[in-house]
């Protein structure tokens, strides 16, 4: 909404909540740690709940809820359902919220009970553990801000669009786009198992900038040529299982789903 005051058009401060579920809290930390924007953020939105920054949250209606972390307990499941009910817009931030993260590496393989028992034995939990899943396994997500951690330019571009009531802009390009703009030699030319072409860009090609192959932490680039890229990597001497294992760590089952289908 736009209001006129002091001869200037200003937008009404949106009510915002920033919530951490199961994860390392690195994405919330990135927001706080972006010193050049954090005061601008606190001045331009009405932060109702952000426990990492202030221990006095007000839990009520929200314009935007930012959700970090996967949903891994019954308590978290109930909490995310409640937040969804009172938030007009819900944004999943970071790899754990978007794709499930490392903790959902084996989600859906029907061994959860067995793995749980092996690690914790026979104990009573304060809240029932669930097999870790991304936020969209439980509620509708309006926007995804992937990353491990999220990128400050992408995060603040989205936040400032939401403040101004504008539609955030998707970036459906592979890691290769930024990688080439960073003038890196393509690792595939040296037969290195890089999954940049299958991975959504936005990270600024953080790993290839240091000569390391992309492991998919931004999740799937939906337009990727999954079928042929797998064949190309196999021609480098990798087995399909080795490639799946590499992908499972970060991009998780969302990339695997595309690999299994051979594309969109």
């Amino acid at each position: 909404m736009i209001e006129v005051g002091n001869n200037k058009l200003t937008v009404v401060k949106p009510k915002v909540g920033i919530y951490g579920f199961t994860g390392c809290a690195g994405d919330q930390l990135l927001i706080i740690h972006t010193e050049e924007e954090i005061l601008n953020l606190f001045n331009s939105v009405d932060i109702r709940s952000f426990v990492m920054a202030s221990s006095n949250p007000t839990e009520e209606e929200l314009d935007v809820a930012f959700i970090e972390g996967s949903i891994s307990t019954e308590e978290e499941r109930e909490h995310i359902l409640k937040i969804r009910k009172r938030a007009k817009i819900l944004v999943a931030i970071g790899n754990c919220a978007v794709s499930g993260g490392l903790q959902s590496m084996f989600t859906g393989d029907n061994t959860f009970e067995k793995r749980m028992n092996k690690v914790y034995g026979d104990v009573e939990f304060l809240t029932n553990p669930l097999e870790a899943k991304p936020v969209d396994a439980f509620v509708v997500v309006d926007y995804y801000l992937p990353g491990c951690p999220i990128s400050a330019p992408q995060a603040f571009a989205l936040i400032s669009r939401l403040i101004h009531g504008a539609i955030p802009e998707p970036y459906p390009h592979p890691v290769c786009h930024e990688c080439k703009l960073n003038e890196n030699r393509c690792l595939l030319l040296d037969k290195i198992t890089c999954i940049g072409p299958l991975t959504a860009g936005g990270c600024g090609s953080a790993c290839p900038n240091h000569g390391l192959p992309c492991v998919g932490c931004w999740g799937p680039n939906e337009d990727g040529n999954f079928e042929h890229h797998l064949e190309l990597l196999e021609s480098f001497g990798k087995t399909r299982e080795e490639i799946r294992r590499l992908v499972r760590g970060y991009g998780g089952h969302k990339i695997l789903k595309f690999i299994d289908k051979g594309g969109k």
């Binding site: 200003t10 601008n40 080439k180 990727g224 890229h229």
Partner: peptide, 29 residues
């Protein structure tokens, strides 16, 4: 084709660009 787009970045006559508006993190327009 991997649709990686490298060909466009390295081609001396590819000249397409996209334009995007980035708002400041503020309540002003």
């Amino acid at each position: 084709c991997l649709s990686c787009g490298q060909c466009s970045m390295v081609c001396p006559t590819c000249n397409c660009y996209s334009v995007t508006d980035v708002f400041d993190v503020t309540n002003e327009q």
